[in-house]
């Protein structure tokens, strides 16, 4: 799964973009992806919040992920 990382999420995984292989646990939904990320990188559990964007829109937990989606990991935003 091709993922984009921003802000502290980029620091946690060490890259701004990467193809992540979850093996047989490959996440089907946004909720699954959050859980898989937290399992692999416990630091994600310590954040104030964790959102996922699919094709540059905030995606709710029940959104299903397709292989050609642009998926981004959105840690707490702090613009302004």
């Amino acid at each position: 799964m091709d993922l984009l990382f921003f802000g502290i999420a980029k620091d946690i995984v060490g890259k701004s973009q990467m193809i992540m292989d979850f093996g047989e646990d490959s996440p089907n939904s946004v909720a699954d992806l959050k859980q898989a990320l937290k399992k692999r990188y416990p630091e994600f559990s310590k954040l104030t919040s964790l959102a996922i964007a699919v094709n540059s829109e905030y995606a709710k937990d029940d959104v299903q992920l397709k292989s050609n989606d642009e998926v981004a990991i959105i840690p707490p935003v702090s613009g302004g």
Binding site: F6, G7, K46, L47, I74, P75, P76, S78, G79
Partner: peptide
């Protein structure tokens, strides 16, 4: 804007840097 727009700010101090609101 501060709640929804995906922009992130890092505070750079003399000896450290911190992503604002991350934790």
């Amino acid at each position: 804007l501060k709640r929804t727009v995906p922009i992130w700010k890092k505070e750079m101090f003399k000896n450290k840097s911190v992503w604002v609101s991350a934790h």
